[in-house]
């Protein structure tokens, strides 16, 4: 049995239907304790106060925002090469979650940034990159929404995703260069690795795992919905053709 078996929508629907409740349960079982531990049972940091606890949402959502785009790139490539419908529908499903994660990361970042740096927004390379990533997500989703035929939409969005990935990567380097260039030695560092001590690290890991599981659960639900939408679209066309 190969992994490609599940490229068949019927098999995917059957299996995902069975797996889904377990994934949801696991997501809840990691996310809730992780959040509670992180928010209520970690000490207040000396310099940062309570505001530091936003990392339990900020860091996982930021990680997911990038990883989801990477997953979309892989699934788009699979669609282009092997034309597996489940793959490209999963990419579409993931985009909505990815853009939500990006917005969460941006907003929590702004909320955190205010007490930390005294500003909601700075054109720091990392912040700027996330804003750009948000724009790429918007474009990808807008293209999906604009095209009526599901297969054409799948093809074109996949091409956009592949080309977009290259330009997103270029933007990342460009932004790094741009900021260093004008404001030598950025005064704001968003590098969390330096700040995170072990007490915060373990609940953070749990939260990250929770976000991953939450994503898997959501993407399964959305993919199932997308597949049903394709089915609905085909049924509609057939009805129209019978009348003709």
């Amino acid at each position: 049995m190969s992994l490609w078996e599940f490229a068949n929508p019927v098999k995917f629907m059957a299996l995902s239907g069975k797996v889904l409740p377990w994934v949801i349960a696991l997501a809840v079982l990691t996310l809730v304790p992780g959040m509670v531990w992180g928010f209520f049972f970690t000490p207040e940091a000396v310099n940062f106060g309570n505001s530091v606890k936003i990392i339990y949402i900020h860091v996982p959502s930021a990680m997911m925002a990038i990883n989801i785009w990477a997953m979309m790139l892989v699934t788009s490539l699979i669609w282009i090469v092997r034309r597996h419908h489940v793959s490209v529908r999963a990419a579409k499903a993931a985009a909505l979650i990815g853009v939500t994660m990006t917005v969460i990361a941006l907003i929590t970042g702004a909320i955190w940034g205010e007490p930390m740096w005294g500003t909601y927004w700075a054109w720091d390379p990392r912040l700027t990159s996330f804003l750009i990533l948000f724009l790429f997500y918007l474009g990808y989703m807008a293209l999906w929404a604009a095209i009526e035929d599901p297969d054409t939409a799948a093809d074109l969005t996949s091409v956009l995703c592949i080309v977009g990935s290259v330009f997103a990567l270029l933007s990342r380097y460009a932004v790094n260069f741009w900021n260093q260039g004008l404001h030598q030695g950025a005064s704001l560092s968003v590098d969390k690795e330096e700040h995170v001590a072990d007490v915060y690290y373990l609940p953070l890991l749990l939260c990250i795992a929770g976000f991953v599981l939450l994503f898997v659960a959501l993407v399964l639900i959305r993919t199932r919905t997308e597949l049903r939408l394709v089915r609905l679209h085909r049924l509609e066309i057939r009805e129209r053709m019978k009348d003709a």
Partner: peptide
Amino acid sequence: SLLVLPLYIPTLIFGAE
């Protein structure tokens, strides 16, 4: 415009810089 403008970002950054 929505699709192309993000793709223009690297060119703009390097060009204007």
